[in-house]
Simulated assay, not measured.
Amino acid sequence: MPRMSAEERRESVVRAAMEEFGRGGYYGTSTEAIAQRVGVSQPYLFRLFPGKRAIFLAAADRCIQDTIRMFEEAAEGLEGEEALHAMGTAYKRAIAEQPSRLMMQMQMFLAVAAAEQEGDREFGEAVRAGWMRLWDAVRLPLGVDGTTRFMAHGMLINCLVALGFPVGHRVWEGLDVDPLRCGPGGPQA
């Protein structure tokens, strides 16, 4: 079996970091856990990335890039309501099939809030820049009003899934998510 290149190993670290940070958050995840998941030593991990912060920011950026790509592919050739429904369906499928994506998103928000409470605005600036790329990618096919509605609806789904509300619970009424299983705690049919 051929050895992985540094770039391939770096990619495996980013993917592993999304899983680990999604589960444990920035402060609750050790670089040792990430190194173990990838099958490398911590010293090797730090040859690929200068530190835990750089690993987290690379994982956050990848999470956003993957989400942008998913929305662009779903909305290709569509606009308005058609794009909104296609993107919504793609997102619900993604959080059902890859709950780590949802959890990583939620952990990004928490990590920025915690860093800024400590006076670290640079950390948040990096994550906000990625989020603005996501906002702009959604805005292209949906326009201003559609983007606000879509993002608000998506954040509500994120929160309800992260909180583990089961299918059939009254909080899901009107959210059109029953056909899909959406991640860690709900909706599960």
Rank of each mutant, 00 (worst) to 15 (best):
R3C: 01
M4L: 15
S5G: 07
S5N: 03
S5Q: 03
A6D: 13
E8R: 08
R9L: 15
R10D: 05
E11C: 00
R15H: 11
R15K: 14
M18G: 05
E20N: 09
F21R: 03
F21Y: 15
G22D: 07
R23N: 04
G24I: 07
G25I: 10
G25E: 03
G25R: 09
Y26T: 09
G28C: 10
S30R: 13
E32K: 14
A33Y: 06
A33Q: 14
I34V: 15
Q36K: 15
G39F: 05
S41W: 05
S41G: 14
Q42G: 02
Q42K: 15
Y44A: 08
Y44W: 03
Y44L: 07
R47V: 06
F49G: 12
G51W: 04
K52P: 11
R53Y: 06
R53A: 12
A54F: 08
I55E: 10
F56M: 09
L57N: 05
A58C: 09
D61C: 02
R62H: 12
C63H: 05
C63S: 10
Q65R: 15
D66W: 01
F71R: 00
F71S: 02
E72G: 02
A75I: 05
G77A: 09
E79F: 01
G80M: 09
G80D: 13
G80Q: 09
E82D: 14
E82A: 15
A83E: 06
A83M: 08
H85E: 14
H85Y: 07
A86N: 04
M87G: 11
T89H: 07
T89A: 10
A90V: 05
K92Q: 11
K92E: 02
R93E: 11
I95G: 01
E97Q: 12
E97I: 00
Q98C: 01
P99L: 05
R101P: 00
L102A: 04
L102Y: 04
L102G: 03
M103W: 01
M104S: 03
M104W: 06
A111Y: 13
A113R: 15
A114S: 09
A114V: 14
A115T: 00
Q117V: 08
D120A: 06
R121P: 01
R121N: 06
E122D: 13
E122W: 10
E122S: 14
F123Q: 07
F123K: 10
E125A: 15
E125L: 12
R128H: 13
A129M: 04
G130E: 10
G130Y: 12
G130F: 12
R133K: 11
R133W: 01
L134M: 11
D136L: 13
R139A: 08
P141F: 05
L142Y: 04
L142C: 08
V144F: 11
D145I: 06
D145H: 10
T147P: 07
G154Q: 10
M155V: 02
M155T: 03
I157W: 00
N158W: 02
N158T: 00
L160R: 01
L160T: 03
L163H: 05
F165D: 01
F165V: 07
H169P: 04
V171N: 00
W172S: 07
E173A: 11
G174K: 05
G174L: 08
D176Q: 12
D176N: 13
D176H: 13
V177F: 02
P179Q: 05
R181V: 10
R181F: 02
G183M: 02
G183F: 02
G183T: 03
P184E: 02
P187E: 08
Q188D: 07
Q188R: 09
A189K: 07
A189P: 15
A189I: 03
